[in-house]
């Protein structure tokens, strides 16, 4: 089974250094979006590199492709920035860049993976919230953390 980036939201401090590392590693184009959970909390949106990627199915130009190593990659030259993948993505992690007319998409830092390194976002994570490991290991390991206690308690506390 392939390795994936896993986010433990309980540890994340929302500093966005993962997005900064992504930008500095990808010609100043961050491939990692963030969503605001609350006024002060942010969640990095990592691509899950699905087994059956909806983005690849929706792409009219075959720019999105599932590779042999199970990563879903976007071809820069084929992409026309139509945003179909962003609409198709069930997790909302693809955010089209309307100014540059492209759709940034996580490539799991393939250049670093080839060197045996971990992706930049995981290497730079300040809080230890991001990890890069086998999916099965992560699920077995992190079962107790599947429900994010910090986030849930905050939102339930607010609901009256």
């Amino acid at each position: 089974m392939a390795k994936r980036v896993y986010l433990n939201l309980d540890l994340c401090c929302g500093c966005r250094s993962c997005a900064a590392a992504c930008a500095y590693g990808h010609h100043l184009q961050s491939l990692l979006g963030h969503s605001k959970l609350d006024g002060t909390a942010e969640q990095p949106l990592h691509c899950l590199h699905c087994d059956q990627p909806a983005c690849a199915a929706a792409c009219p130009n075959e720019a999105m492709k599932k590779m042999e190593d199970d990563t879903v990659l976007r071809s820069q030259f084929r992409c026309v920035g139509c945003g179909s993948c962003a609409l198709a993505c069930p997790f909302g992690v693809i955010q089209p860049d309307l100014f540059k007319h492209i759709t940034p998409k996580c490539d799991l830092c393939i250049d670093r993976l080839a060197e045996g390194e971990i992706p930049r976002c995981v290497a730079t994570c300040t809080s230890g919230a991001l990890s890069f490991a086998e999916v099965d290991d992560q699920l077995a390991d992190q079962n107790k953390n599947l429900v994010s206690v910090r986030i849930l308690s905050n939102f339930i506390g607010k609901r009256r």
Partner: peptide, 12 residues
């Protein structure tokens, strides 16, 4: 190994 966004400015 971790760096905050400002730490990344060092490269620039």
């Amino acid at each position: 190994g971790s760096l905050c966004p400002r730490g990344h400015y060092n490269l620039e």
